[in-house]
Design a protein around this nucleic acid. Structure first.
Lengths: 111, 111
DNA sequence: CGGTATCCTCTGTGATACTG
DNA sequence: CAGTATCACAGAGGATACCG
């Protein structure tokens, strides 16, 4: 039994899925790999997610220390940038593998 | 937009998660890597999942062509063995990466 | 621009009992 | 042994409107 951020997981694989699982988190991380994006830029890349859900997922990822949120208030309009933390960067090879396997399926098994 | 088994995904990463996502699928696949296990052997390795859920998840994985189900009816008691298909075997490096990252988190960030 | 508030639906999962 | 049937529920996610 493993613990992370107060949650318990029966297996190392389920811990990973508890952090990056769900319908949207890997997609967010996929777009944030090696990049910094504003809220609206993320929205444009993920047109089928609702604002509410995107917002909630970003918050969860931030709470888990995977991404960081930087607010620029110097002058309006408001500007918020999201990027991976050092901890989040350790996920890059994994996210890449997830995306690669998806591509592989699309090319060879899509129907 | 990508398709697999009649389902649609907006991103290659979400396609992967659509197939192996959820609370239990990666755990099942983790235990089936390179092995063949009977239903009850899986249950013993995953004591916190209910029979119903395990059964449903196995069925979904079978429908997606990730695992195969082999029934031995020769003589009672009934014997059902689960193992990865060739397609499922292409997931092994990914499942291993997922488990490895989970281990890494447990060792370095567990709290 | 970058969200929240409110309300709602639906899927995944659980508990328990039962079966070929 | 290897499930299925039935019931129940929480929480993930969606729709829409509104806000600082």
């Amino acid at each position: 039994m493993h613990k992370f951020n107060g949650r318990q997981y029966p297996c190392c694989a389920s811990l990973t899925m508890g952090i990056i699982g769900g319908k949207w988190k890997t997609v967010i991380l996929f777009y944030l790999m090696g990049k910094t994006l504003r809220y609206n830029e993320l929205r444009k890349k993920m047109p089928t997610v609702t604002e509410r859900t995107l917002s909630l997922q970003l918050k969860t990822l931030e709470e888990d220390g995977i991404i960081k949120r930087k607010v620029y208030t110097s002058k309006p309009p408001l500007r918020v940038e999201y990027s991976l933390t050092d901890f989040g960067n350790t996920l890059i090879p994994l996210i890449q593998s997830i995306a690669d396997w998806g591509d592989y399926v699309v090319e060879n098994y899509s129907k």
